[in-house]
Amino acid sequence: MKNIVIGTAGHIDHGKTTLVKMLTNINTDTMKEEKERGMTIDLGFAPLNIPSGDIISIIDVPGHEKFIKNMVAGAKGINFVLFLIACDDGIMPQTIEHKEILKLLGIKNGIIVLSKRDLVTSERVDEVRSQISQEFKEEFFKDFPIVEVSLKDSSTYENLYNLILKEVENFDFSSSNNIQNIFRLDIDKIYSPKGIGTIVSGTTIGNINKGDTLTLYPQKINIKIKGIQNHGKDLEYISSQQRCALNITGATAKEIERGNLLTNSKTITNSKIIDVVFNRLSEG
Rank of each mutant, 00 (worst) to 15 (best):
180 Q>G: 07
173 F>K: 04
279 N>F: 13
242 Q>L: 09
2 K>I: 03
189 K>Y: 15
30 T>A: 00
93 P>V: 04
189 K>S: 14
237 Y>K: 15
264 N>S: 12
192 S>I: 03
237 Y>W: 14
206 G>S: 08
120 V>E: 06
224 K>G: 00
182 I>H: 12
204 T>C: 07
274 I>F: 06
253 A>F: 13
41 I>R: 01
200 V>H: 00
140 F>R: 03
14 H>V: 12
50 I>R: 11
121 T>R: 08
249 T>V: 07
105 L>M: 09
157 Y>F: 14
51 P>C: 03
203 T>K: 13
102 L>P: 09
31 M>P: 04
152 K>N: 15
238 I>Q: 10
100 E>C: 03
34 E>H: 04
247 N>Y: 00
246 L>A: 09
91 I>E: 12
118 D>N: 04
103 K>Q: 08
40 T>I: 15
9 A>K: 12
272 K>T: 12
233 K>C: 00
244 C>A: 15
128 V>S: 00
186 D>E: 14
11 H>S: 08
143 D>N: 14
88 D>Q: 03
191 Y>G: 07
119 L>P: 08
4 I>G: 08
112 I>M: 06
102 L>F: 01
78 I>A: 01
232 G>S: 05
260 N>K: 01
90 G>I: 10
254 K>M: 09
185 L>Y: 02
65 E>S: 11
210 K>G: 11
208 I>C: 01
31 M>Y: 14
134 Q>D: 06
76 K>C: 15
234 D>K: 08
180 Q>T: 12
214 L>D: 02
167 E>K: 13
135 E>R: 00
282 S>E: 14
13 D>Y: 03
165 L>H: 11
63 G>I: 05
17 T>D: 08
149 V>R: 10
228 I>M: 09
205 I>N: 13
156 T>H: 03
74 G>C: 07
181 N>Q: 06
281 L>H: 03
108 K>L: 01
151 L>C: 13
33 E>H: 09
258 R>L: 13
76 K>G: 04
67 F>S: 13
83 F>Y: 12
179 I>Q: 10
60 D>T: 03
142 K>R: 13
127 E>S: 10
252 T>D: 13
264 N>L: 08
15 G>R: 00
134 Q>P: 02
256 I>E: 06
138 E>P: 09
36 E>H: 07
69 K>I: 09
135 E>Y: 03
208 I>D: 01
137 K>W: 04
235 L>C: 03
96 I>Q: 14
176 S>T: 10
253 A>S: 15
276 V>Q: 10
149 V>I: 14
271 S>F: 02
43 L>N: 13
113 V>R: 00
196 I>S: 05
64 H>I: 09
6 I>N: 02
53 G>R: 03
6 I>R: 10
120 V>Y: 01
106 G>W: 09
12 I>V: 15
200 V>Q: 02
119 L>M: 12
159 N>G: 10
117 R>E: 15
177 N>T: 06
224 K>E: 12
271 S>V: 10
257 E>T: 14
201 S>G: 11
247 N>S: 06
122 S>P: 05
185 L>K: 06
132 I>N: 01
235 L>K: 07
17 T>C: 00
153 D>W: 05
271 S>W: 05
221 I>Y: 05
123 E>A: 10
30 T>D: 00
158 E>I: 05
2 K>R: 11
147 V>N: 14
106 G>T: 04
56 I>R: 12
113 V>W: 03
211 G>Q: 04
81 V>Y: 11
8 T>N: 05
39 M>Q: 08
